[in-house]
Simulated assay, not measured.
Amino acid sequence: MNELAQEYFPRSTKRSAVTQLRRWVVLCVPLQHRLEELSFHKGQRVLTPLQHEAVVEFLGEPGE
């Protein structure tokens, strides 16, 4: 999740970027549901390829 968070928030520290991305996920209820379907669990540090795709699908490509 660190790498994806850094892509969305390139000017933030790694920790801050992850915190901000988690906030976005919390605010996007459909994304939360999709990640739950894909077995995402709180505290997970690495996203599976399908989880990564879901984040991008709901939040858009980083840097756009």
Results as ranks from 00 to 15, higher is better:
Gln44Val: 14
Pro30Glu: 05
Glu36His: 10
His52Ser: 02
Arg23Thr: 07
Gly63Met: 05
His52Met: 06
Thr48Met: 02
Phe9Gln: 05
Arg15Lys: 15
Gly60Asp: 02
Gln51Ser: 09
Gln44Ala: 13
His41Arg: 13
Gln32Ile: 01
Val56Asp: 10
Ala54Asp: 06
Leu31Asn: 09
Glu36Ser: 09
Arg11Val: 06
Leu35Gly: 07
His52Trp: 12
Pro62Gln: 04
Glu57Ser: 00
Asn2Lys: 15
Glu7Gly: 01
Arg34Gln: 11
Met1Asn: 05
Gln32Asn: 04
Leu35Asp: 05
Tyr8His: 01
Val55Gln: 00
Ser12Gln: 15
Phe40Pro: 09
Ala54Arg: 03
Lys42Gln: 10
Glu64Val: 08
Phe9Asn: 04
Glu7Ala: 15
Val56Gln: 11
Glu53Asp: 14
Lys42Ala: 13
Leu35Cys: 06
Glu37Gly: 10
Ala17Val: 05
Thr48Phe: 02
Tyr8Ala: 01
Glu53Ser: 11
Pro10Ser: 04
Leu4Phe: 05
Val29Ser: 11
Leu38Ile: 04
Arg23Glu: 02
Gly63Lys: 07
Arg23Gly: 10
Glu61Phe: 09
Pro30Leu: 10
Leu4Tyr: 10
Leu21Asn: 09
Cys28Lys: 03
Pro10Lys: 09
Met1Arg: 08
Pro30Asn: 04
Val55Thr: 09
Thr48Asn: 05
Leu21Ser: 09
Phe40Asn: 03
Leu38Glu: 12
Ser39Asn: 14
Phe58Ala: 11
Arg34Tyr: 00
Glu57Val: 00
Glu53Asn: 09
Glu64Ile: 02
Gly60Asn: 01
Glu36Trp: 03
Arg15Cys: 03
Arg22Thr: 15
Asn2Trp: 11
Val46Pro: 01
Thr13Glu: 13
Pro30Asp: 04
Cys28Gln: 05
Arg23His: 01
Pro49Asn: 10
Phe40Tyr: 15
Leu4Glu: 11
Thr19Arg: 13
Glu61Tyr: 06
Pro49Val: 01
Leu4Lys: 05
Asn2Ile: 15
His33Ala: 12
His33Met: 08
Phe9Glu: 07
Leu4Pro: 10
Leu27Thr: 02
Glu57Gly: 00
Glu3Asn: 08
Asn2Val: 13
Leu47Lys: 07
Pro10Ala: 03
Phe9Lys: 04
Val56Leu: 13
Leu59Pro: 05
Phe40Gly: 09
Arg11Ala: 10
Glu53Arg: 15
